[in-house]
C-alpha cells in the first residue's frame, strides 16, 4: 500500500476534468432542461389559469346574458300582458259602446213605436169616443155633437166675456176651428152668441184635420179650446195603467 504522487496529481487533474465535462454535458443540460420544462409547465399552468379565468368570465357573461334575457322576457311578457289587457279593455269598451248604441237605437225604436202606437191609439180612441158620443147624443137626445159643442162654447164664453175681451184686444175676427165642418145651425148659433158679446168681431169657421175632435176658438191673442184631447189623455192613462199592471203581473208569474 503506497501512494503514487504522480498518480495522485493525475487523478486530481482527471477529477477536475471530469467535473468540467459533467458540468458541461450533464448537469447544465439536465438542470436547464428541467428548469425549461418547469417554466413551460408553469406557463401552461398560467395559461390554464388564464383560460379558466376567461372561461369563468365567459360563464359569468353568459349568466348575465341569460339573466338579461330573462328580465327582457319578463318585461316583454308584462308588456304583452298589459297590451292584451288594454286591447281587451278597448274591445270591451268598444263592445259596450256598440251595445249601448244598439240599446239606444232599440230604445229610440221602441220610443218611436210607442209614440206611433200612442198616436194611433189616441186617434182610434178619439174616433171611437167621438162616434160613441155622437151616436149617444143622436140616439138619446136627438142632437148633434157639433151643435151641442157650439152651445157649450157659447155658455162658457159668457162668464168669461170680460177677460176674453181684454185678452182679445182689438181683434176684428174670431176663428173657430173644428176637426169636421160645423153644421150651419151651429155656425149661426155661435156667430150670434159672439156677436152679442163682441159686436165688432166677425166669425170665420175653419176645419183642421190634425186637430182633435172638438172646437177651438181664437180671438186675437186669446184662445179657447174644447176638444177630446183631455178625454183621450185620460183614456191613454187608463190603458197605460192597465198595461203596466198586466206586465207586472206577468213578471211576477214568471219569477214565481
Amino acid at each position: 500500500m503506497s501512494i503514487d504522487w504522480i498518480t495522485v496529481v493525475a487523478q486530481i487533474a482527471n477529477f477536475l476534468v471530469l467535473v468540467w465535462l459533467l458540468r458541461r454535458f450533464l448537469y447544465r443540460p439536465i438542470l436547464d432542461g428541467i428548469d425549461a420544462r418547469e417554466a413551460e409547465i408553469a406557463e401552461r399552468m398560467q395559461q390554464a389559469v388564464r383560460a379558466k379565468k376567461q372561461a369563468q368570465a365567459q360563464e359569468d357573461a353568459y349568466h348575465d346574458k341569460v339573466q338579461a334575457l330573462n328580465v327582457a322576457q319578463a318585461q316583454m311578457t308584462e308588456t304583452i300582458r298589459k297590451t292584451a289587457e288594454e286591447q281587451r279593455d278597448f274591445l270591451l269598451a268598444e263592445a259596450q259602446q256598440a251595445l249601448d248604441q244598439a240599446h239606444a237605437r232599440w230604445q229610440a225604436h221602441m220610443d218611436e213605436e210607442t209614440r206611433k202606437y200612442t198616436a194611433k191609439l189616441h186617434h182610434a180612441g178619439a174616433s171611437a169616443l167621438l162616434a160613441l158620443t155622437r151616436k149617444a147624443l143622436g140616439d138619446l137626445a136627438d142632437a148633434t155633437l157639433e151643435s151641442q159643442m157650439a152651445q157649450h162654447v157659447v155658455n162658457q164664453i159668457k162668464p168669461m166675456a170680460t177677460n176674453l175681451r181684454r185678452a182679445a184686444g182689438e181683434a176684428a175676427e174670431a176663428v173657430a176651428t173644428s176637426h169636421t165642418p160645423l153644421p150651419a145651425s151651429a155656425q149661426e148659433e155661435l156667430a150670434t152668441a159672439l156677436h152679442d158679446l163682441f159686436p165688432e168681431v166677425s166669425l170665420r169657421c175653419e176645419t183642421d184635420k190634425d186637430q182633435a175632435p172638438g172646437l177651438v176658438l181664437r180671438i186675437g191673442g186669446a184662445q179657447l179650446a174644447w176638444t177630446l184631447d183631455t178625454y183621450i189623455d185620460g183614456l191613454e192613462a187608463l190603458l197605460a195603467e192597465k198595461l203596466s199592471a198586466g206586465a207586472d203581473h206577468k213578471e211576477q208569474s214568471d219569477d214565481g
Partner: peptide, 21 residues
C-alpha cells in the same frame, strides 16, 4: 491501470451524458 480505468470511467460518464442530453 488507475489512470487508465479512470479515463474509462470518465469516458463512460461523458459519453452517456452526451448521448442522453
Amino acid at each position: 491501470a488507475t489512470i487508465f480505468f479512470t479515463w474509462v470511467v470518465m469516458a463512460v460518464l461523458t459519453c452517456v451524458a452526451i448521448l442522453v442530453t
